[in-house]
Design a protein around this nucleic acid. Structure first.
Lengths: 249, 249
DNA sequence: TTTATTATCGAACACTATGTTCATTATCTA
DNA sequence: TAGATAATGAACATAGTGTTCGATAATAAA
């Protein structure tokens, strides 16, 4: 045993997502690790814009990133996991922004933020990438994850809103799913048609289409609360528009 | 040249979809051809139900259908084309039904048919297959085709409906896309959650969600036509519900 | 600076699947 | 029955995936 059991004990690089903090001691990520991951992500993004996700091989990424084959597989199980790690990155950025808004809210500033409008604007900025990732001729992987994520954000909001209502004609799960679906549907249509309208117009359409549906889906309000009821849709949009309320709980 | 130029001139089997009818002479499909195609389609369907489209290899289909490899490629370029041919088959069935309804309509019988309800019911009957084909964990190929097809049916309807309107707040392309998207979104949600509600309830939800949206999306009617205007949504549903109107033009 | 650690490299390899070729055989239509 | 055409199946070329492991290089910590 002295010569070190050389039986396939290749170590995996430390996952930077899991900077485990026990006993206040953060584990720093090895420079090489973050560098490699960055290179691979950059290569992936560039290649996606060029050819679309489906038309990329692992070898392409390796060549572009100038990284060894085994290194890739030391970090990710496959191409999908790399793409997913990008999505997780985006998500954490989004959640950071949410936190920021939450605190600035409690301070009193920034009365309203329109998350849907922001989404359309942000998408427009990176339309090439997003079209390649979510467009009609590409795999739907990311769209599915996004759908699930947004659903998770929205569901509690609707559950809150329907607490004081009787005879809700459409189950909240369906309504949440509907709303997210409509948003993503508008978004992909917009991208696939090369953004023929400005983000503001798209947001207006989204509102026009979904607001009356939500009123209808939530059903008749209970009698004793008629004031807070008429502006439920308004309330919803404020909730939805303000990301904090959704998951800041 | 006498011995018949044997230079890679393998003939493709006659495509039965193209039973060309010129001069009243239909070309009969060779028994062997239809038999092979039937076997391959049956194998595909069975395998899809078992494992889902993504997890099937061409070899699997070959084994199940008991058909030679080269035979497969004589008929279809790849797996996708086989699946597509199934979709085309379904579509032609649908269009036949549409024709039948159209003629029986002109005869005076069958006052109304609810195409959306029929769709939910038909899906329920074959839920295993459709879930495997369109469910969340499978590729979206068929869903995309279906989306496009339904869009094509719907667009002219909306164009007709908006002819007499001014200041339509949402472009008809967007509205059509929205409506189809919502229908398919409800459908996949339903399948993915193992059909927790009956088709009738699903159809009701679809109506609840989309009717007010459509009213809103079509915008204010012109003044002089106020009667026909208030029931535009009604008219739309009759149009949409009655498949004839959509593409029977 | 030194040292122990650990990430990267890269070439070889096994594996799975795709799609093509073609001479031979079986089946159909007329 | 004859001529035409479809099916067969084995062999092949191609392409991509994911793994292995000894050697090398970069890093953090001492």
């Amino acid at each position: 045993m002295s010569a070190g059991m050389s039986v396939s004990e290749q170590k995996l690089p430390v996952c930077p997502g899991k900077k485990e903090k026990f006993f206040m001691g953060e584990i720093k990520t090895d420079r090489r690790v973050s560098r490699t991951r960055r290179l691979m992500l950059e290569a992936l993004m560039a290649l996606i814009e060029e050819r679309g996700y489906e038309n990329i091989t692992v070898q392409d990424i390796l060549d572009r990133a100038d990284v060894g084959r085994s290194t890739f597989y030391a970090h990710f199980r496959d191409k999908d996991e790399l793409l997913l790690s990008w999505f997780e990155h985006l998500r954490s950025l989004f959640e950071q922004q949410k936190e920021a808004l939450l605190t600035s809210r409690s301070t009193g500033s920034t009365p309203d933020a329109n998350i849907v409008l922001d989404l359309f604007r942000h998408t427009a900025e990176h339309h090439k990438l997003y079209k390649a990732v979510a467009g009609r001729q590409s795999g739907e992987m990311i769209l599915k994850y996004l759908h699930r994520y947004l659903n998770g954000l929205l569901l509690p909001v609707f559950e809150e809103l329907t607490k004081r209502r009787r005879d809700v004609p459409v189950p909240v799960e369906v309504t949440a799913n509907y709303l997210v679906g409509t948003l993503l549907s508008l978004m992909t249509w917009w991208l696939d048609h090369n953004m023929p309208y400005p983000p503001e117009k798209m947001e207006a359409m989204f509102r026009t289409l979904t607001r009356p549906s939500i009123e209808a889906a939530l059903g008749t309000p209970v009698a004793d609360n008629s004031e807070a009821v008429n502006n439920t849709a308004e309330g919803f949009y404020r909730l939805f528009i303000d990301p904090l309320c959704c998951a800041g709980r």
